[in-house]
Nucleic acid binder design. Structure first.
Lengths: 269, 269
DNA sequence: GCCGGGCAAATGTGATCACAAATGGCGGCA
DNA sequence: TGCCGCCATTTGTGATCACATTTGCCCGGC
């Protein structure tokens, strides 16, 4: 697929290079469109390409940034600029401003007192809290979802988990992050929750960039998840087992790795 | 104090009337400023009155809307318009747009598919979920906070609770809502949490408008809180008692009233 | 009297401009 | 050679404009 944006260092300079990052941010878009002058004043018709409904562009921008955060394409501590993001996405800074504002409200981005925006850094205390919040929320919503998870759902989860194993074998960190998110939220979404699910999403948006840096440092081969136990619990319709599997998955996946890194003298990363 | 804005029905029409709502939204502001033409093009210096730092106006707007939501000055189902809010607050629609966007990201406001914005309606399912989320999060953060709550804090809480009793006696619903929020968050804020506290804030932003309508319908004299038990638990440094008091306060305060109203045939309000 | 079409007003959205603050680099001075 | 102050650039923010869509209302026809 075509060249695209390196989100890890993106938006700090308007680098015109097309580097090795393989994943397009905005589906079906031509990223290296170096003629922004073809949008003279009010020509948002070019941007509203797929003829969808209202507010498509802003939501596309927000979805792109959310996915970039969840897959770890934003590095904690890196600056994020409205104009840079807008240039990368081929839109004016306006929809980016709103999307960033929405993410910042969820503490997924950090609007610093000097006005600049950056990907939040992780601290030991914040990591502890995120861990506790996950343990509080996710076993709860998983048990809520159990009633709606049937055999086809379990098959879907098995399929995702196989892909996770594959991405772990090949060392595809970004793919692992996306698939791990897909696995958990395939379960959680089944709960049909309008309240708890967004809370869980917020927590994920906050810890995902940090987890990516952890995986980049220690590698993905250390990942030991409880996905197969969770699938088995779903197949047996075993509430306690599912709750236990989710909680252990969170503890094993985040707890040891996170603390080992945050305990290092280089501290917040 | 001066005339101000009726947030309950605000922004649906640019009503120039100064009605009976007693609370100013933006402290130290002249609400009925009918000459917006004194801000010709880029004169944001007049708005940046108190000479504070960057992004003051947008944060003031968001804080105003948040407080209005928490005290129930927004009625569920009512429309909210950018231009209306902007006119009420004396600013251009731009900072309102961002503030509303941030609140909408937290599901505190509802951006409907047709583009319009309104205060979210309550449903039985959503109420159940909000109740569960509160019971999940608030006892947790309260016990986290217990270590930081000393005798002066307990005295502060007693003072707030006395004011709550007073507002219940006089039937001041808005004052009760504000004081009840102050009571709970005086406890929760002590936990020093950067993650769970915003989650709790989000949940409160979602259920507060509905609770206001409940109180407006059934009156505040039915309120039976567990504040005194919570204060006693803090004074005895009794974790289990504090956790139990908070959970019962949530259940008693929301559960019965909410379900009785939502169970009524008029349904979602 | 009721319903439907059509027009005016309202509303959110994206783009662009102007501006203040902050950043970063460059040169001069000790 | 090292440090400090100044200036160009960057960056977020608010305002305003243009526009698509939707809403609401009025009027004419049945």
């Amino acid at each position: 697929m075509g060249p695209t944006v390196n989100w890890a260092k993106c938006s700090v300079t308007k680098t015109p290079h097309a580097n090795a990052t393989p994943t397009p941010i905005l589906a079906g878009r031509e990223p290296e469109h170096d003629t922004p002058d073809d949008r003279p004043h009010g020509d948002q018709a070019t941007a509203r390409s797929s003829g969808s409904q209202r507010a498509a562009m802003r939501d596309r921008v927000e979805a792109s940034v959310r996915e970039a955060l969840l897959t770890g394409r934003f590095i904690p501590g890196n600056p994020v600029t409205l104009r840079g993001l807008a240039a990368d996405l081929g839109v004016s800074p306006m929809p980016v401003r709103e999307a960033v504002r929405a993410l910042a409200a969820a503490h997924a981005l950090d609007m610093r007192p000097n006005g600049r925006i950056r990907v939040p850094r992780m601290t030991a205390q914040r990591f502890d809290e995120l861990l506790h919040a996950r343990i509080l929320l996710e076993p709860h919503i998983a048990t809520m979802a159990l009633d709606f998870l049937d055999k086809p759902a379990a098959a879907e989860l098995t399929q995702i988990d196989d892909a996770i194993d594959e991405s772990l074998r090949t060392g595809d960190v970004e793919g692992y992050m996306r698939l791990n998110h897909a696995f958990h939220f395939r379960i959680y979404r089944a709960a049909g929750s309008e309240v708890v699910l967004p809370l869980v999403e917020n927590v994920w948006l906050q810890f995902a960039p940090f987890m990516r840096t952890v995986y980049g440092r220690v590698g993905t081969f250390v990942v030991e998840d409880m996905h197969k136990e969770a699938i088995a619990a779903i197949q047996r319709n075993d509430r306690a087992a599912l709750r236990h599997a989710i909680e252990c998955d969170i503890r094993d996946g985040m707890g040891i790795i996170g603390h080992s890194v945050l305990g290092a003298p280089d501290g917040a990363a």
